[in-house]
Design a protein around this nucleic acid. Structure first.
Length: 423
RNA sequence: GGAGAGGUGUCCGAGUGGUUUAAGGAGCUAGUCUUGAAAACUAGUGAUACGGCAACGUACCAAGAGUUCGAAUCUCUUCCUCUCCGCCA
């Protein structure tokens, strides 16, 4: 959520930023400005009346005690009370409208973000590794998985439906090994491991920006009003909702494994085969709470921390800076890490690392103060996949396949897998 | 799921409609006393939000709604905690 003060003081900057995101919100910005003026005006008048009501109310018991007649004052107070109620009603209407507009507005992109209409204008920042030249015809991971008997979407379709998988045997073990390897790597690197709930309430989904705008993307329980998490970002960031953190303890760094659930609304027909786009997938997520002046340095480090696991696995990847037109709703700046997938013959997103600045922390009221006497200020929140598990499995199967259909297990996973080859 | 008890400030805890600007205590801060410390005494003490240039005002007693001139206190809804029972991993 944007700060109403930024809109009040620099509406043009906000309008321009929305246009860079392909959204014309000029009319909404103007409406916000009008609401803001009116809101403050009514607040002042109503609070003044409230002050009078408080002071008169204090005198009433004294007058009664002295045997005075209060009926005239009571009648006057009744009128005042009605006026206050009317003022409050107007205020809550204005506040509700203001809030609903603010909740619908995406974050302002950081000045370093490339301006662009969509993903075609993302900027490649760096590349690591070299895509392998095969001396045989490489298979896509869904064929490799089926041939090895480790990937079984058909049974999942019977048991549940489309876009789910059973992993079997060494496939299931590979999934589990990657989770452990990622968590071990990140905890050695200073992240505190947490295991979060996989369902969250509405306040948490609103805090990180999934609601109210993107409700149709989430799986929702009928009763109670809970959502299946689309990413561990939601429960982990909301751990500190409505809290004031100690400045000396920042940055706070968490890593968390979770299953992730996405309805994938609007993506029918895309990536229908294999592990790339599922309704349920596993992911290890990195989450940071940082001081504002350090958050962009922290974003670079978080991205590097995510890259490290791919380097250790030996998977070629590249890092791209998303353009204004391709960035997510809540993000001020995002790097995507894309792993090389032979079957796609291109790099494919496996991690998305973002600085949300104070966009989430304002919604979720996550603050800090350096000293006990300071005024609390909003932290900057960051997160990134470190990294997606299912897509890692796909990348390992495809990049490390052998001519006989077997898969060479990356060195770092062997102690988890208990074998060198999947065959 | 059933029955019961609760949720008040940093903490403990009083408070069933108005002299409560939330009693009292603990803790914390400063001072007095003391060679120093402890004790005692005195004073201070909201890690909150909004409006206002400011003085200040307003809100906030789990959350939300209601009754009333006036609500921590009465009514309704929700959430959470604890105890017992049931069920379960």
């Amino acid at each position: 959520m944007l700060d109403i003060r930024i809109i009040r003081e620099n509406p043009q900057r906000v309008k321009d930023a929305m246009k860079a995101r392909n959204k014309d919100m000029d009319a909404l910005v103007e409406e916000l400005l009008a609401i803001d003026v009116k809101r403050r005006e009514i607040t002042q008048v109503t609070e003044q009346k409230r002050a009078e009501q408080n002071s008169v109310s204090k005198r009433i018991p004294q007058i009664k005690k002295e045997g005075g007649d209060t009926s005239e004052i009571m009648a006057e107070m009744k009128r005042l009370s009605d006026e206050i109620k009317e003022g409050n009603a107007q205020l809550s209407q204005l506040e509700e409208r203001q809030q609903s507009i603010l909740l619908s507005m995406p974050n302002l992109p950081h000045e370093s973000v490339p301006i662009g209409k969509d993903e075609s204008e993302n900027v490649e920042v760096r590349k690591w590794g070299t895509p392998r030249e095969f001396d045989f015809e490489p298979l896509p991971h869904w064929d490799l998985g089926a041939n090895l008997g480790i990937l079984d979407p058909e049974t999942a379709a019977k048991v549940t439906g489309a876009r789910f998988h059973f992993l079997k045997g060494l496939g299931a073990r590979l999934e589990r090994s990657i989770i452990s390897f990622y968590l071990d790597t990140h905890t050695e690197n200073g992240y505190t491991e947490v295991f979060p709930p996989f369902m969250v309430n509405r306040a948490s989904m609103t805090g990180t920006g999934q609601l109210p705008k993107f409700e149709e993307d989430a799986f929702k329980l009928k009763e109670p009003d809970y959502f299946l998490i689309p990413t561990a970002e939601v429960p982990v960031t909301n751990m500190h909702r409505d809290e004031i953190l100690e400045g000396a303890k920042l940055p706070v760094k968490y890593c968390a494994y979770s299953a992730c659930f996405r309805a994938e609304a609007g993506s029918a027909g895309r990536d229908t085969r294999g592990l790339i786009r599922q309704h349920q997938f596993n992911k290890v997520e990195l989450v940071k709470f940082a001081k504002p002046e350090e958050s962009y340095q922290e974003l670079e480090e978080l991205t590097n921390d995510a890259e490290r696991v791919l380097q250790l696995l030996g998977l070629p990847y590249r890092v791209v800076a998303l353009s204004t037109g391709d960035m997510g709703f809540s993000s001020a700046k995002t790097y995507d890490i894309e792993v090389w997938l032979p079957s796609y013959n291109r790099y494919c997103e496996i991690s998305s690392c973002s600085n949300f600045e104070d966009f989430q922390s304002r919604r979720a009221a996550i603050r800090f103060k350096n000293d006990i006497k300071d005024k609390p200020q909003l932290v900057h929140t960051l997160n990134g996949s470190g990294v997606a598990i299912g897509r890692t499995v796909a990348a390992i199967l495809e990049n490390f396949q052998n001519a006989d259909g077997s898969i060479t297990v990356p060195e770092v996973l062997r102690k988890y897998m208990g074998c060198d080859v999947i065959s």
